[in-house]
Design a protein around this nucleic acid. Sequence first.
DNA 1: GCCAACGTTGGC
DNA 2: GCCAACGTTGGC
Length: 139
Amino acid sequence: MAYWLFKSETSTWSWDQQKAKGDAGEEWDGVRNYQARNFMREMKLGDLGFFYHSQKDREIVGIVEICAEAHPDSTTDDDRWECVDIKAVKDLATPVSLDQIKQDPRLAEMVLVKNSRLSVQPVTEEEWKIVLELGGTTL
DNA sequence: GCCAACGTTGGC
DNA sequence: GCCAACGTTGGC
């Protein structure tokens, strides 16, 4: 089981929109970055991820599950681009802000901190547990 | 709204 | 295959 983090600007695709899709889930399309795509290719059914709002809110708000492995991105004919489908699992009881993450020395190595521009990124099991704890959430 | 950091593109 | 120019992202 691997853990991931998906980043989205609230105005582009919000957590509320993701939740509205329910168990059907939704394509995580529109990614045009090789690193991000490569991570999506590694994802397996049932892997879990965080849903992060970038820009204005800057906080992790929820938990998602991979419900379809990498397939061609339906928003482009360019066959270089693939994406996975994700579905909302649950809200974090308390959102975990970027500030909190930066203040916690245990999370100093998170990709979110190290490479803020990467929109799809891996999360270690250690980091996963700490963020859940900060969010007052158990699965 | 600014700007630093980064990724991609294309000319050579 | 290098690197300058450009575009985009996202924190501040």
